[in-house]
């Protein structure tokens, strides 16, 4: 990988500090005069050290996972559900998800089935009590 080199006029720190964030990333390397400047300039050395620490700290954030709430996974699967017939078939075949995961149609169908069952039970009870009265 070709590197750009920086020239380093002595006592002119700001010209180098502007590039330090790239130096620490390995995108640039210092020529001899820049190395001599950094060898004797505590300010530049301190800034370079700070950049190195900053990059290490940022890299450590990679291992930190922000835990989402429990509904995110459901929402993702619902979004996939809405997006494609194939996915909907997959969810139906699984047969273990609540109706709300299978879309508004499934919710209506489930509610309808529940209402029909309840109605049948009520009707059966009424018929049974009528027969008891008449019998």
């Amino acid at each position: 990988m070709p590197y750009k080199t920086l020239t380093a006029p002595a006592g002119d720190c700001h010209r180098f500090t502007a590039e330090l964030s790239e130096v620490v990333d390995g995108g640039q390397c210092l020529d001899q005069s820049a190395l001599e400047h950094f060898g004797s300039c505590l300010r530049c050395q301190a800034e370079l050290a700070q950049y190195k620490k900053l990059l290490r700290a940022l890299s450590n954030l990679r291992g930190q996972v922000i835990t989402p709430d429990d509904f995110l996974l459901t929402d993702i699967l619902k979004a996939l559900d809405r997006a494609g017939e194939g996915w909907r078939r997959h969810l139906t075949v699984l047969g273990e998800r609540p109706a709300f995961l299978r879309g508004p149609g499934a919710v209506a169908a489930t509610a309808g089935a529940a209402a029909a069952t309840a109605g049948a039970i009520v009707l059966a009870n009424r018929l049974s009590s009528r027969y008891r009265l008449t019998g």
Partner: peptide
């Protein structure tokens, strides 16, 4: 470069070493 510069200036406003243990 700009982002790193801002972060560095914010974390080390007075040249303090504050991100050592992060």
């Amino acid at each position: 470069h700009r982002a790193r510069k801002r972060l560095r200036e914010r974390l080390y406003p007075l040249g303090e070493e504050r991100a050592d243990a992060v």
